[in-house]
């Protein structure tokens, strides 16, 4: 017992030492930073016209640095595949949601869908965008799942999977389609960029929302293949 306590104490001391070294290192790194790093905001502002949207954040996420967003969505999809590979849905004891949750979800879900649509639309010129809209849509899905709603078995097979990959598919199609006319990957022609970004964002919103709700469900929904 005492030997155990001794090792615990040594371990704790070692941990404190390591953390102190790391904190000192981080502090040193922050202090060594140049105080006047220019950043890329000026470059974004000068090229904003060509991106097709007037919100610089959306311009960076969906156009200038589209790769990052594309890979983020791929990560989300891989996470869902990982969760699904762990097995089916555990047998929850089905409980009736109760009048408050039932009424509230009936009121809130249409409003959440409306808010998601608004965030998606407003993302082109003000704070908002696909990830925010998608997460609001996902929250609506979580609320529905909490109040006992389940996906119909007919839709749990292919239709669900199509929606899950819709965002990634639209992104890759829009990014790769213009390879044919000689652009580099993910270079949109600036005349079409605004519409393209809105379409990609709409597909991404749907996919992100459904992926997040499916992650909350935590298991592959049973598909009714026999139907």
């Amino acid at each position: 017992m005492t030997a155990n306590g001794q090792t615990g104490k040594t371990f704790r001391l070692l941990l404190v030492l390591l953390l102190t070294v790391m904190a000192v290192g981080l502090g040193y790194a922050v202090l060594e930073l140049h105080s006047s790093a220019g950043g890329l905001s000026k470059q974004v502002a000068t090229n904003l016209e060509a991106s097709g949207v007037s919100n610089p954040v959306t311009a960076v996420l969906l156009n200038f640095r589209g790769y990052d967003t594309l890979l983020e969505m791929a990560v989300l999809l891989v996470a869902l595949i990982g969760v699904w590979s762990l097995g089916g849905i555990p047998d929850y004891r089905e409980s009736s949601p109760g009048p408050v949750l039932d009424t509230l979800s009936r009121l809130l879900v249409p409003m959440l869908i409306l808010v998601a649509g608004y965030l998606l639309w407003v993302g082109t010129h003000a704070p908002g965008g696909a990830f925010q809209a998608g997460s609001v849509l996902g929250a609506a899905g979580v609320l529905l799942l909490l109040s006992g709603w389940r996906l119909e078995k007919i839709f749990a097979g292919l239709p669900l999977r199509v929606i899950l990959i819709l965002g990634l598919g639209a992104f890759v199609t829009a990014g790769g389609g213009f390879l044919l006319i000689g652009n580099v990957f993910m270079e949109y022609p600036s005349a079409l960029a605004g519409e393209l970004i809105l379409m990609v964002e709409a597909a991404a919103t749907l996919s992100i929302g459904v992926t997040l709700a499916a992650l909350f469900l935590g298991g592959r929904p049973e598909a009714g293949l026999d139907k």
Partner: peptide, 11 residues
């Protein structure tokens, strides 16, 4: 902030 509130805190 929007993403943090919706994803970080909510989902």
């Amino acid at each position: 902030a929007l993403a943090e509130a919706a994803i970080g805190a909510g989902l």
